[in-house]
């Protein structure tokens, strides 16, 4: 099996059955994995921030998977344009954690929660639903998707990997 590491801001799409997509060490970032059960297309994004409008002038070299508002339509739109049908897509998300104890009042502190909300809204905006989610809390996670059989896996730091 070939492992493809989906790093921060990366967007990956594969039709190769021998591939495992992995979004490692998700802290406040949210990983979204999507699988088309019929055509066996697998996709993943590793989202860092909720909204691309945070940058007044978006760098043209910015990674497409960095912001939820751009990443989700890009990934899901690509799958639909490749012939995927909405009813065949399974979507799962993980991540969006935050620091346990917060002093002060800064927007940075709830980035995890904002990422989760932005991802869920963007998925809804594509007339799709999130089938399973493991989000929030104070722990890091790794999300995996096996493109051969569409199995999703979740590993919470310090725990065993589970099917999810």
């Amino acid at each position: 099996m070939q492992e493809i590491i989906v790093k921060m801001g990366d967007l990956e799409l594969t039709t190769k059955p021998g591939v495992i997509l992995i979004a490692p060490s998700l802290g406040s970032c949210v990983g979204l994995a999507v699988y088309d059960q019929k055509s066996r297309i697998a996709g993943m994004v590793h989202i860092v921030l909720p909204d691309s409008n945070v940058k007044h002038n978006l760098n043209t070299e910015e990674k497409i998977g960095k912001y939820a508002d751009i990443a989700i339509p890009a990934l899901l739109g690509k799958m639909l344009s490749l012939g995927s049908k909405r009813e065949n897509l399974i979507i799962k998300i993980a991540g969006g954690a935050q620091m346990f104890n917060l002093k002060g009042d800064s927007s940075i502190m709830n980035i995890g929660a904002k990422n989760i909300e932005a991802v869920e809204n963007a998925v809804k905006g594509m007339n799709l639903v999130v089938n399973n989610a493991d989000t929030g809390g104070n722990t890091g996670r790794t999300l995996k998707l096996n493109a051969f059989n569409g199995n999703f896996y979740l590993k919470v730091i310090g725990q065993q990997e589970i099917e999810f």
Binding site: G27, M99, F100, N101, K103, G104, S106, I157
Partner: peptide, 12 residues
């Protein structure tokens, strides 16, 4: 990140 990492405090 480890098991402890997010169980810390940030003073903004």
């Amino acid at each position: 990140i480890g098991k402890d990492s997010m169980l810390q405090e940030i003073d903004m």
